[in-house]
Each structure stands twice: as structure tokens, then as C-alpha cells.
Nucleic acid binder design. Structure first.
Lengths: 335, 335
DNA sequence: GTTATTTTTGAAACCCGTTTCAACCATTTA
DNA sequence: TAAATGGTTGAAACGGGTTTCAAAAATAAC
């Protein structure tokens, strides 16, 4: 059933080389023969075996994408952008859900290596991966994270530090006096930098930094929110480490009868789609997800084409005020 | 750098065939030679080229997954389950985001065909795809949809009809008198069946079916909700075609000052993760996403292993009452 | 000790598209 | 008209595991 290039050649009365040249336009072919070949391809529905081509070319036109969890809205949005950008450049996406399991990550990197993937876009934390990434000849792009000790690898990150600062400054503009930070995992640069931004603003205003630890995750957010209320009963501003945690915090606040933003104001981070769909809509820090994902693919394309590219890519962030915070001026107007 | 099986063979003083046999355990090998081979593999870090293997075996250990949009929580959850099940069986996932673009779907099916994917799990509507799927020798599984005229293809679906009935009956139990259905696209079997369930319950109770059309999508949900309020000002129960639309409806209701569930009760469909995270938590119909995704992979594995499998797979649904509906009995208790 | 049987082993063919290289044909130029 | 230049073309090699098949080695049977 599946027909080969040799069979096409036989039927068209030419050599396989000529068929290859017709398909790829890699050399001139006598117009009469070209037509014969195209006719045979058309009537047999011949489709070249991509594995054979990839084997010879040492390129499978596949980009590996390793995310912690595709179910997570932030990574879902990134995956969507990456797939789209790749598709437009005739690349396909091999998706791996690592669940932050280093063993699974390594296994997936090995698989991609053996499949001669043309690049790997990875969103992970594991410093343990440094070695693995180091002796892989595939180009890597590390997205939304930064791993120390890998000077040769391209990074793409939002300016988490600035985001942390902006979020904190915004809560102060909103008149909050007791602002507590639910900081993200300190093993991730995003968690570190956001928290650092918060701390620096505290310092500049002579405030004492107040924080709790939390994973980037809804369930953890519930626990953290309860601990927060117990520990800081007079809190009036909460800086959540991301939108999912902010959603969890809201749920707890609401069940305890706190009003947002009247009693407690709340900031998220990431601007995932749901932060806008929620009622109330969440004030948050915007990461340019679309641009970041597209750049990740672009870097791999440039690597393949041996063009140069920037290794360190820091994307600017911005703040969107929605319904969980209210500037002092606006609050006064309403009074 | 990248070493081949022939080089391993040379260094171990055996033939490539023997190395292959050691790696795959396809035949007995003299223990001394086996050790020599394993030692060389270990010290060189040799990893067999998966493309060469796949070329010969005509199997790439890749399963294609075509979803309308990975950003959509429902498909994100399905993709996650599918990836996990595939991974546990040494398969990898090639993800395609079709955006319901038939051209893109066809192109992706062709790519998967040329890559000798071992199976394709597709969530799509296009009847136009029937022909394409028909003359593909790869096993297909159609998930969450049903396409008429493809008797040979495996389908996996939740019992949308029952779900539609249950949702409607629940709203009636909750004392709603004016129940309007925001029905999903009638080109999908899910849209048809859910609506049919609603209609049948109406008929059985001598009620007039009242409905509006809407896509499975938040933005469309906003429009539909506004139209609904204009058209049916005395509505007191809304049956949304899925959770995303229910979220949109809630947003409109809330902005217009309606209370849920006191003034209007609201049912979703799918039980996506966010339906529980929202405030209020949404009453909805549960599709067994996990089981459905796992079965899709299992069917492909069975096909590959030439075992038999069920072609028509209808999964049972159930109802979860949360905070957007309230049974009459409960309402009375509270009075 | 010899023959029969089983196990191990490697050479070569295979999967299939691509590319190189030399042969071939058709123009141009001298 | 002969030599030189340029464009077409196909045979063969290539990429790298896998498998077949027959030879070689080892064991069993007589």
C-alpha cells in the first residue's frame, strides 16, 4: 500500500534521484519528466517517508517541549503559542509533561536526542539537568526559568524582579499598610526574583518584609492563605506568587467573609486567561506569553540555520489593575 | 560525537547484529561478549538512533494528538492524561492544535502518516475529515466527538444525552420554572446530544423548549448570555453548554445584579478544574476525562498489538451539585 | 569417537529518501 | 568541424538499526 520513491521512479520511467529532485526542487529537471513524475505522485498519493528523510538529513523537524504540567493554564498558553509558531515554520511539537520529575525529564531529553529533534524548549527548575543538557548536541531554550551554570544555553524570562516591585508598589499606591507576600518556590528564579522585588521595595520604604512560602499551585495556595490569616490577622494587602495562588487566596478570603478589595486587596502574577474571567477580575502582572513562546521557537530556528541569536532574553512586564485592587485616588473619589 | 552501532561493535570486537541483540534482548548472546558490549555502550554513552530503528520497524513510538485548542482547559486535561498514559507505555505524544482548521488537521494527519506514527487521537468535528481518515493506515481514535460514516473507527464519548437530561432534571428539582438552554454547536454530537436530552425532559413534562445557540467558548458565552437576558427576562434556570460558557454567563449575571443561585440557577458541563476553583463553585456534569483519555491510548496499543477492542465507547456521566444550584428541599430548610 | 542437534554469530540485505559523482547529451565557442 | 562549456541524469553510496540466513561453534546423542 505505502508506496516508495523507487516505485514512483519506476512508474514514471526515471530514477529515484530525479523524483527526489522534482519533489524538493534541488536541481533542474527536464519539464517533460517533471510532469510525468508529478502525475505519478498525484495518482498514487505518494507521500515521502519522513523517517528516511530525517535519518539522512539528521533533522526530524520536531521540536521537543517539556512543560511541568500542560494542565496548568500558564503552560497551556505557552504550549499553544509554541505549537503555532513551530507549525508556521513546518515544525511539529513533541510534548512532554514532566510533573517536575527529573527522571522523566531526562528520559524525555534522551528520547528527543535519539529522535534527532531539532531543538528542545524546556520549562523546568532542576539544576540536576545542567549536566544532561550540557552533553546534548541539540539546541536548548530554557523558558520561564533560569538555570545557573549553563552559559551556553539560551534563556527566556520575564522580568520577575520588576514584576515583584510593581506589584508591591501598586499595593502601596492602593493604600495597603500590612502587605504580606506569599512567595513562590525559591528554587526557581521566578520565585526568587519576584520576592526580591517585593523585599527591595519594603526596604526602600522602611517596611518589614512579611512572607509565607508556597508552591505555584492552587491547593498549596489554600493552605498558605489559611496560614496567612492566622499569622497576620491585620493584613490588608496580599501579593500572591501567581494567579492560581491568588485564586486560592480569594476563595479562602471569601469563605471567611473578607471583602476584596474593600477589606483586603489582592495581586496575582502571570495574567493567565482565567485571571480575567474570574469574578472579581484579578489585578495581576502581565508576562508577554505570546512573545516569549514565539521567541523560543525563533531561537531554535536560528540555531538550525546557524544564525546568531541573543542568549539572555529578559521580557518586560506590566501591571493590569482590575477588580481586586483599588488605587487610593479612586477609592477617595468613590467616597 | 554521535556514535553508531557499528562503532560500538568495532570497539567491543563483535558484529553490529550482536550489539543489537544485546540491546534488545532478541536473542541469546554469550555472557562474556554481552558484558563487553554493555561496557562499551556505557563508556561511550551510545544511544541508538530512533529514526533508523523506526524506519526499519515502521513504527515511531509516537502517538499524534490533535486537539482544537490546548489552551482550553478541557482539552488541556485530556492531553495531560493522554501524555501520561502514553509515556507509561513508552510512547511519546506529538501535539497538534488544530483551531478547528480542517486544512491544518489534514496537514497534521499527513505529517503523522509520513512519520509513521503508531496512532492518532483526534478531537475534531470536521465531517470533511472522514475521507482523509479513511485512507490512512494509521489507527485513529476519535475522542469526545463522533463522526458519522466511519464505521471502522473507534469512538470515545461521554453520554452527553444523559448529561443533558440530568442537568435539566436537576434544575427542575431545584424549583426552576423558566429554564433556558444555551446549546452548543449542533455540528458536534456533544452539542446535539446534550440539547436532545434537555428537549426530551421538556417534552416529558409538557414544557416548551427554550434555547439559544452558542459556541463552546467564553467570548461567545458572554454574547449568548446577554441575548438570553434580553429574550427571556423571567428566566430562573440556565443550562450552559459547557463550563466555560457557564463562567461567561455568571459574569454577565453578576454584572447585572442577579444573584446565583437565589435569582437564577446555573448548570455547567464538563467539570473542568476551574469549575471547582471558581467562586461560586459551579454545579456541573462530570465527564470522566481521565478514563476517556487513558482508553484512547489503550485502544491504540491494542491496535498495534493486534488485539481486539471495542469500537463504540460511551462513558457514563454524573452530576455534581455545587454552589450555583440549590435543590428545593435545601432551599426550604434554609428558609 | 562420530554424527546429529542446537546455539551463537556475523555478513549482507533491508527500510527509503538524499546526495555525490561521473557519464551523457546539448549547446557554444574557436 | 572539433573542442569546450554547461545542464541532465542515474548508479551507487549513505545514514544507522534490524533481521535473515547460512556458517561456525558448542552441546547432545548414539
Amino acid at each position: 500500500m505505502m508506496i516508495s520513491i523507487r516505485e514512483v521512479a519506476r512508474r514514471a520511467g526515471v530514477s529515484p534521484s530525479t523524483v527526489s529532485r522534482v519533489m524538493n526542487g534541488t536541481a533542474n529537471v527536464d519539464p517533460i519528466k517533471r510532469e510525468r513524475v508529478l502525475a505519478v505522485i498525484h495518482e498514487t498519493g505518494f507521500a515521502p517517508n519522513e523517517l528516511a528523510r530525517a535519518l539522512f538529513k539528521k533533522s526530524s523537524k520536531i521540536i521537543g517541549v517539556i512543560v511541568p504540567n500542560i494542565e496548568n493554564a500558564f503552560f497551556g498558553e505557552l504550549a499553544r503559542v509554541i505549537e503555532e509558531e513551530a507549525y508556521q515554520n513546518q515544525y511539529r511539537i513533541l510534548l512532554c509533561n514532566s510533573l517536575n520529575d527529573t527522571k522523566k525529564e531526562i528520559l524525555n531529553i534522551q528520547t528527543l536526542n535519539r529522535l534527532h529533534a531539532d531543538g528542545i524548549i524546556i520549562m523546568t527548575n532542576s539544576e540536576n539537568l545542567a549536566a544532561q543538557i550540557g552533553n546534548c548536541q541539540i539546541p536548548f531554550v530554557i523558558l520561564d526559568r533560569k538555570i545557573e551554570g549553563l552559559d551556553e544555553i539560551a534563556f527566556i524570562e520575564a522580568d520577575h524582579y520588576k514584576g515583584g516591585r510593581m506589584a508591591m508598589e501598586h499595593l502601596m499606591d492602593c493604600g495597603c499598610k500590612q502587605i504580606v507576600c506569599i512567595r513562590g518556590p525559591q528554587k526557581y528564579s521566578s520565585g526568587q526574583q519576584r520576592f526580591l522585588g517585593y523585599c527591595d521595595v519594603c526596604k526602600e520604604h522602611g517596611l518589614q518584609a512579611q512572607w509565607l512560602d508556597c508552591d505555584y499551585d492552587y491547593e498549596e495556595g489554600l493552605t498558605a492563605a489559611e496560614a496567612l490569616l492566622a499569622q497576620y490577622p491585620d493584613v490588608d494587602g496580599i501579593l500572591a506568587c501567581n494567579d492560581m495562588v491568588a485564586i486560592a487566596v480569594y476563595k479562602i478570603l471569601q469563605s471567611r467573609g473578607y471583602r476584596v478589595p474593600e477589606d483586603i486587596q489582592l495581586m496575582g502574577f502571570d495574567n493567565i486567561r482565567f485571571s480575567r474571567l474570574f469574578t472579581p477580575e484579578f489585578s495581576t502582572i502581565v508576562q508577554p506569553i505570546k512573545e516569549m513562546g514565539a521567541l523560543a521557537v525563533q531561537i531554535i530556528l536560528k540555531y538550525v540555520q546557524e544564525e546568531s541569536f541573543e542568549k539572555e532574553n529578559l521580557f518586560d512586564v506590566s501591571l493590569i489593575q482590575r477588580q481586586t485592587t483599588r488605587r487610593k485616588a479612586e477609592a477617595n473619589e468613590k467616597q
